[in-house]
């Protein structure tokens, strides 16, 4: 069982002075998963990731990477070889070129000769920076620097990626590029733990989600389970006729709840508990009742709405 887990923590706790940043966290991430960590600022996400990356020593608790215990007081080069860590503040050596920077880190991770050059070319291709390989790091844009940081994280072919707020401050195009890189890495079988405030990105990338509040891991489940338990369907309708008539007609259906008229868009929004067949029946009944329907959308509450609904917004 533990062999299938890329990460396992047991009662992991980190205390700074009077503040408990991470509190008794039992986290389990299966190999090959993309695990999204969400929570308000100060909930303990960064501290948790730093402990997993060996950048911070736990106050109490244990961390297992691929079933092997991680110890801060032991120099464990083979475990460090497994991990690729991209912090939210990613310091770079401004005096180096892109190629020299990656070459330096490749050497730090014992990559030699042709294998090193090949790997450098591969990661530059993955992060789409091949054309910038001879440029000084100072000349790169923020998005490019972020991608260079990711290339540095990937250079030694880690099997576990820890990404802390990797898309913060990026424009939509750079974010889209970053998402496509993560998908490529996921397809390559890498286990990825990613913390982000951009929940729509996580929704697109992640297979599981963990929610942190006050240092606790209050929720940890596959995304599908989370939707199944906490996400409700929603209907969005508009009519060429009287909205009140539409509302009356909808209220007759027992599967429709919380009907609201959105006065600014002249639409009706309601929660819906039925399946797709029952939704088709509802649409048919509305048309039969002579409602001049303009649009009929059936959607589901997204991750952001689930997060707000759960209400875990306290910082530690």
């Amino acid at each position: 069982m533990s062999q299938d887990l890329a990460i396992r923590t047991h009662q992991l706790t980190k205390q700074f002075d009077r503040q408990i940043a991470v509190n008794d966290v039992d986290l389990q991430i299966k190999t090959g998963e993309v695990y999204g960590l969400i929570g308000p600022n100060g909930a303990g996400k960064t501290t948790l990731i730093r402990m997993l990356a060996t950048a911070e020593e736990p106050t109490v608790g244990e961390i297992y990477i691929n079933g092997e215990r991680l110890r801060q007081d032991h120099h464990q080069p083979h475990l460090k070889q497994y991990i690729g860590y991209l912090p939210d503040d990613y310091p770079l050596y401004d005096d180096l070129t892109v190629w020299d920077y990656l070459d330096y880190f490749a050497r730090l991770y014992h990559l030699r000769g042709k294998r090193r050059s090949r790997r450098l070319r591969e990661v530059l291709e993955i992060v789409e920076l091949t054309h910038k390989r001879k440029s000084q790091i100072t000349t790169l844009s923020r998005g490019m620097k972020q991608r260079l940081g990711l290339a540095r994280t990937l250079i030694h072919e880690p099997i576990l990626l820890l990404l802390d707020e990797p898309v913060s401050g990026l424009d939509p195009i750079a974010r889209q590029q970053f998402r496509s890189i993560i998908k490529t890495l996921q397809e390559a079988g890498m286990t990825i733990l990613i913390s982000s405030h951009v929940l729509s990105d996580l929704e697109e990338l992640c297979t599981s989600i963990g929610i942190m509040e006050l240092g606790f891991l209050v929720e940890s489940a596959p995304l599908k389970d989370l939707y199944g338990r906490l996400s409700r369907q929603r209907l969005l309708l508009s009519s060429r006729g009287d909205l009140n008539a539409l509302k009356t007609e909808l209220s007759r259906n027992p599967l429709v709840e919380d009907i609201q008229i959105l006065s600014d868009t002249q639409q009706i929004q309601a929660h819906y508990a039925g399946n797709p067949d029952e939704a088709a029946d509802l649409l048919r009944s509305l048309i039969t009742a002579g409602i001049p329907l303009d649009s009929f959308y059936r959607t589901q509450e997204d991750l952001e709405e689930i997060f707000f609904k759960i209400g875990h917004k306290q910082t530690s």
Binding site: Q15, Q19, N23, D24, L214, Q314
Partner: peptide, 21 residues
Amino acid sequence: KSASQTVLASSEMMVKQPSPH
């Protein structure tokens, strides 16, 4: 003791929160 109390207080805060489930 104060370290243990901090942990306890923080756990109590979590328990007092209304559960969404």
